[in-house]
């Protein structure tokens, strides 16, 4: 049963979370809820990327007592997706803070969080 391995399970979880986050973004009316859905979507993409880089029965990409310099290529998982996710997490918190600031500004202009009641972009 190949789907019982941990990389398949975590990738399926990531895909389900992606769908839930996308559903939240397009169906919710409250602007804070939209930002929360965005953060769920963010986490799901990190999960998918890390599970793509996983290779069964191999260990973390750090040279120490277990992994020596010479046999590193046969003993470690893929370090490249991990490096990409590491930067993506920090960018994610910055973008979330920026969106929250815009939400705060919209709230102080319009006194409501419902995006249907924002009149400034309608014509």
């Amino acid at each position: 049963m190949k789907y019982f391995n941990i990389e398949y399970i975590s990738m399926a979880t990531g895909l389900f979370l992606f769908l839930v986050g996308l559903w939240g973004i397009i169906s919710q009316k409250n602007i804070i809820k939209i930002i929360i859905s965005f953060s769920v979507l963010d986490t799901s993409i990190h999960l998918i990327l890390v599970s793509i880089g996983y290779i069964r029965n191999k260990t973390a990409p750090i040279i120490d007592g277990v992994v020596s310099k010479t046999d590193a290529a046969t003993k470690i998982v893929d370090p490249l997706p991990q490096a990409l996710v590491l930067t993506a997490i920090v960018i994610g918190v910055g973008v979330t803070a920026l969106m929250l600031t815009y939400a705060l500004r919209m709230y102080s202009e319009n006194k409501t969080l419902e995006i249907n009641k924002y009149k400034s972009l309608k014509w």
């Binding site: 470690i76 893929d78 490249l80």
Partner: peptide
Amino acid sequence: FSAYHGADKLNSISEYYA
């Protein structure tokens, strides 16, 4: 997801890094 199958060795870029 159905096209995905877990890798069993590093790809060429990652092998260079390792």
